[in-house]
Design a protein around this nucleic acid. Structure first.
Lengths: 228, 228
DNA sequence: TGAAAACCTGACCATATGGTCAATTTTTAA
DNA sequence: TTAAAAATTGACCATATGGTCAGGTTTTCA
């Protein structure tokens, strides 16, 4: 039911031999891709094996079942996902802290779109594996950060915004670029999203959210549309 | 590859006998539920049949294959989804038009969460069925509405915001409440989202977006948290 | 250098599931 | 009333896929 000790302990114990570490990593990388494209049920062990360049039986040597591979992928992703809220603390500057968070999330989305998609798929299907994690660790983290934002609002440092819903909005605004990339590409009339597209998207989200929180706009206006 | 004539023709031709219409509707409703919960691959004809209260063979009498059922569900959803942009036109008031759109999208999300989830799942997996639709009909619609918003901005009626990205943001902000309901419930510490939660969410999104577009805040501040 | 541990994998199996079909009943409408 | 059309469904099949396993090979390290 629960993902192996989520980001609970130190950096993965790294147990097992050299070969094991290498192959497990290869399998996880392949699995992330395949799960992202096909979902849990749609993914097949054979496909993952192919992508990892290993015979199917070998996957079952390292991971007993498909569900185990899936859980390992989720655990790997959660480790990435959680960080980046550090700067949101009582004595930080709201605008800088929020901007930093948005930029970090956007970078994460751009650099690990498959991870985002696997996570999205898990949520979409009711989070059977990470539900507990969301209801405990994540909820507490958000409650903590929400208190910081409440304090900023009370101190007149930003417009009144529901802090928990603000987090929900930030996740939605950023991850949509990975999760629904197909739709984004369609309306932007692009084949895929490049660095320039992500820069534009980041500028847009920053602009919308910071202004929406009464923290003026950081980007003057003319964000060079292309190049560099 | 393409969904049956999307919202192309009139209201579904409604061909076939009385019984056909009834049973097809029952099957589609059941399928929407099941696809929302399990995705395309995860859904089984047996499960859909059970939910529809019909023997499995009967589904295959009305719809040849699972893919056909799926396409029919998508077509049904697209019909719902597209509307509601009417009020976004050159001589409308930006704030009223945007507020109306957000409220409509939010209502749609609250009333048809399963539809939203099926759609999200399709996008997440690269929109193999509705890709063409997105790249043509949807893209044109958005381009048209984007021009309206550009005009509003040029006329100094609202802050400069990238119009296409604004649409992407609006979809993300609203649909996240259905697609990722599990996560939303987790951080809000709720078992499920009720009308009051949706009211709060709507107020939040309106607040964030309208302010973000330089259209002041409509909700004074204290939105009664609970009751009614 | 040798033996224990780790690793590898082709062949195989059980099951789940989408789909078929032919025999039958119900509905429609002339 | 009746025959054609529409609807129904239990039994059945082919295939895909997760998972097993026994017999091997390689690596490790004392």
């Amino acid at each position: 039911m629960t993902v192996a000790p989520p980001p609970g302990d130190v950096d993965t114990p790294a147990r097992g031999g050299r070969i094991r570490r290498q192959h497990e990593a290869a399998i996880l990388a392949a699995a992330e891709q395949v799960f992202a494209r096909a979902g849990f049920q749609g993914a097949t062990m054979a496909e993952i094996a192919l992508a990892a360049g290993l015979p199917k039986s070998n996957l079952h040597y390292y991971f007993g079942t498909k569900a185990e591979v899936y859980r390992a992928v989720l655990a790997h992703i959660l480790r990435l996902w959680l960080a980046e809220t550090d700067r949101i603390n009582a004595d930080a500057d709201p605008r800088a802290a929020l901007a930093h968070y948005i930029e970090a999330k956007m970078r994460l989305t751009a650099e690990h779109p498959d991870a985002s998609r696997v996570f999205a798929n898990e949520l979409l299907h009711g989070a059977p594996e990470i539900g507990d994690y969301l209801r405990h660790e994540l909820r507490l983290l958000v409650a903590e950060k929400a208190a910081v934002i409440e304090a900023w609002i009370a101190g007149g440092k930003m417009a009144p915004v529901d802090p928990v819903h603000l987090f929900i909005s930030l996740w939605a605004l950023t991850q949509t670029y990975a999760d629904f990339e197909t739709q984004v590409c369609a309306v932007l009339n692009r084949r895929s999203l490049g660095p320039a597209d992500y820069r534009r998207a980041t500028a847009h989200v920053l602009n919308l959210v910071l202004r929406g929180c009464g923290l003026v706009a950081p980007i003057p206006e003319g964000v060079s549309p292309c190049s560099t």
